[in-house]
């Protein structure tokens, strides 16, 4: 979480895992097209959505993320053919487990964004940032030692 000292307004910290071949390129396109999306979205580039280990998501929360989103190629379009199919199952189960532990289920999300969807990338991020701002600071799944 980052708090702007002047306004004390809550600004969520969002971590976005983006696969190199689609979503990261989509983010790039959003940038070159001068579309705006919140600066609080920190993008972490991964080779494929399938690279995202559940631990990555938990670690992001530990280090103070208020929301974590994973983006990959649309099902059927994965650069490695099947990576996102596995990732889809994995994330479904992980999110369900987080909900089971009572952690806000809206704080995690998966979106499929292709390299041509700069517009969609910006829209997804704006929407997610809005949702997280509404939810406020993540207190349930953070490590107090990592908080400033």
């Amino acid at each position: 979480m980052q708090v702007n000292e002047n306004s004390k307004e809550f600004k969520p910290l969002i971590v976005a895992f983006c696969c190199n071949w689609c979503s990261y390129a989509g983010a790039d396109l959003a940038g070159t097209s001068r579309l705006s999306y919140p600066a609080d979205v920190k993008i972490i580039r991964v080779p494929c959505s399938c690279r995202v280990n559940p631990m990555f998501i938990l670690k992001a929360f530990e280090k103070g993320a208020d929301g974590v989103i994973m983006c990959g190629c649309h099902p059927g379009d994965c650069h490695y053919t099947t990576g996102n199919y596995y990732a889809r199952r994995r994330m479904t189960l992980l999110f369900s487990m987080l909900d089971y532990l009572g952690v806000d289920k809206e704080r995690v999300r998966v979106e499929w964004v292709s390299a041509a969807e700069g517009q969609r990338f910006a829209m997804v991020m704006n929407d997610f940032a809005k949702k997280i701002t509404e939810l406020g600071e993540n207190v349930k799944l953070g490590d107090i030692r990592c908080k400033k």
């Binding site: 099902p75 059927g76 099947t82 199919y85 596995y86 889809r88 199952r89 994995r90 994330m91 479904t92 189960l93 999110f95 369900s96 909900d99 289920k105 809206e106 995690v108 999300r109 998966v110």
Partner: peptide, 18 residues
Amino acid sequence: APLVNFDAENDVEPSIVN
């Protein structure tokens, strides 16, 4: 095992949790 398997057409999206 189900986590090293998939069904391209019928698998649910993670948003099902919401």
